[in-house]
Simulated assay, not measured.
Amino acid sequence: MKLIIAIVHDEDVHHLIDDLTKDKFMVTKLATTGGFLKAGNTTLLIGVEDDKVDRVIEIIKNNCETRNQMVTSPTPISGAAGVFIPYPIEVKVGGATIFVVDIEKHLKL
């Protein structure tokens, strides 16, 4: 058995969950925040048998597109005194970051 951890953009998650549940995959949804843009994203936990991993990744790929978006530059972390003037920058958002890990034991109580 495998645990698929998929971090996806908030805009992509609703259709993704619909497609996963349509194929009878059980999904746990966690609201998370990205570190660089400090924007909302969603982390999905999906437990599957080894032979279903490729199908889940295919569904994720079909629902999570990378796209360009204009955002305000992040505030500098250093506590430097002075005036910080944010400016727009173009970044890629969307897509998915996927981790597949082995499950030693699975219990459903």
Rank of each mutant, 00 (worst) to 15 (best):
D18Q: 11
G40M: 13
I57G: 09
D18M: 07
D10C: 14
E90L: 00
V8N: 07
N41G: 07
G35T: 09
L16V: 08
A80I: 15
E104T: 02
D19P: 15
N63G: 09
K29C: 12
K92F: 00
K108G: 14
E104F: 05
G47H: 04
G40D: 14
T72D: 14
L107E: 11
H14K: 04
M70F: 10
T21V: 11
L16T: 07
I4L: 07
G82I: 08
H9C: 08
F25R: 13
I85C: 04
I17R: 02
G82V: 09
M26C: 09
D23Y: 13
L30I: 15
T33E: 06
G82M: 10
T33D: 12
F36C: 04
R67D: 03
K105V: 11
E90A: 01
M70P: 15
K108H: 15
V53K: 03
K24Q: 14
E104C: 00
S78E: 06
D102Y: 08
T97I: 13
I98K: 01
H106E: 14
V83A: 13
S73Y: 06
K22V: 05
N63H: 00
C64W: 04
G34C: 02
A31P: 08
V91P: 12
D102F: 06
V27S: 11
M26S: 09
V8S: 10
